[in-house]
Design a protein around this nucleic acid. Sequence first.
DNA 1: TAAAGCATCCCTGAATATGGGGTAGATTAA
DNA 2: TTAATCTACCCCATATTCAGGGATGCTTTA
Lengths: 211, 211
Amino acid sequence: MYTVIIADDHAMFTDGLKSILSNEADIQIKLTASDGQQVINYLRSHNSDIDLVITDINMPDMNGVALNGLIKDEFPHIKTLVVSMLEDTKKIKTLTDSQVNGYLSKNSEKHELLTAIRTILNGSNYFSERIKEAMMKAMFEAKNTPEIILTEREKEVIRLIAKEYTTQEIADTLFLSKHTIESYRKSLISKLQVRNLAGLTRYALENGLVD
Amino acid sequence: MYTVIIADDHAMFTDGLKSILSNEADIQIKLTASDGQQVINYLRSHNSDIDLVITDINMPDMNGVALNGLIKDEFPHIKTLVVSMLEDTKKIKTLTDSQVNGYLSKNSEKHELLTAIRTILNGSNYFSERIKEAMMKAMFEAKNTPEIILTEREKEVIRLIAKEYTTQEIADTLFLSKHTIESYRKSLISKLQVRNLAGLTRYALENGLVD
DNA sequence: TAAAGCATCCCTGAATATGGGGTAGATTAA
DNA sequence: TTAATCTACCCCATATTCAGGGATGCTTTA
């Protein structure tokens, strides 16, 4: 008998999954959680007698990536399967070096889901074709953009720029000289290969540096 | 016997729903589709012998809103239930004046799903609390922002601004005087209540005027 | 330890954006 | 048929950005 936990903030999804898996005689669902913390709490208080955790990559509070890391740290014997919308390709990248046992797109069908679960429970890993493709694409894109790394200060500055602060205001906010902010703005413009504040704002918004 | 169609681009979701509904003796799923076109095609070629269409608000090609409109136009007797992630609050607004018979959040549980389906099949409408709240919020926000309407020219200008064009370049692109563009920029800044290009860029991005 | 990167500050000059005005014809709506 | 709105244009003054530099001390890395 295999024991499984499902974590997803969309109850309709966990209920659906539960319904699908209830037809499998040797699979028992021990918990359905709506966020990562619930999963961790359960594992800690139940001596981690769980074989597999199925989790969405996208959850409030603790996301799938963080949850996976915690599980693998504290309970390395537990297998993990991550499901995601295909839209989250960017996030998939961040999972690359975690030790997830499988990725599956929510576009996958019941049949593939069951295959993945069985493969993982048998000790192998399973990665759906679509996710593999998405990862390849992400990798490829990552290589073509030679990895732009912004320093903390630069991030602060670009964040405030996107928030419509003027140079002087940014300087006042960060207790720096106006000239310093101008230097940062310049290096941001050349680093990100944009032309002006509009480009910086766009970069900030598209890369989730604001809000 | 009630006949139902499920449309969602995430197979795992439709499979889950199917599994849940398969336990209901009087509900028969006639089709699961991954986009709106498939639903329309089916309805047209089957004399529309369908009672209810359950559809995601967010689908490629034809989205839930458009699909709903088409169904209500061509087959007014068919009931429709729209499910959505809570994140799509903005899109919900656009459904307001369509004649959807129910909205449900994907955060809803099996129990609520079944209640909604039965309520709708019995001839009433069903709107989940969460969605009602989200709609209220959307309405409220809509009233507090007294409806900003940009003219076509203004939209063109703000689009180009967000694309990092300078005033002179915009003028050249649109065959207008530099002064004209400056006027537009000014009126945009005051209309949208922002302070500078960063604010305009942000507005353009957040309101889908670019890409 | 030397090199590289980071954070901080400064200067100059040209280009551009911002904020304040205003004019005027064409179109649209009350 | 007015009134309002949209489109298009112009001027002026000031503020800010952008593009070149260059400088210092401190930390991290090779």
